[in-house]
Amino acid sequence: MQKRNTEITVGMFVAAGIVAIFVLAMKVSNFTDFTDDAGYEVVAEFGNIGGLKVRSPVTMAGVRVGRVSNISLDGSTYNAKVTLSLYSQFNTLPTDTSASIFTAGLLGEQYIALEAGAEEEFLKNGDVLHLTQPALVLEQVIGQFLFSKAEGE
């Protein structure tokens, strides 16, 4: 009887621990992101990516369609080369889709917003987005504003 009770309590303990890990996976972390299939990857070059990071969201019309999977510097053009991995259910984006880097809120994190073009053909794995708009750097904007203000007077 004693032994049976021990086994029951230990079983409950182990179950509680596994449930806790499960809760951490499902409720707390973005584990569900990884259950998606890998989807496909496209590359976009930006003059300046600001504070964009790997795993930043990629959205279209505000809906999340993928995430940034890699950022590197192109050695010849000195542009930032950003690899976007898009979920496979969004496989009907036109080839002239444009990408811009925006900031969520005034001081929030940066994300890539895609805007669909008008081409008939769809983006495939490894394609390059040619129409891009770099991140707005707040200091530059303020600097330009002050400069034009001073010039105007």
């Binding site: 890990i21 409720k27 972390s29 973005n30 584990f31 569900t32 795993r55």
Partner: peptide
């Protein structure tokens, strides 16, 4: 926000 910022591999 918690789900977006907490990573399964890196954090948990």
């Amino acid at each position: 926000q918690m789900q977006v910022k907490t990573d399964w591999y890196d954090d948990v």
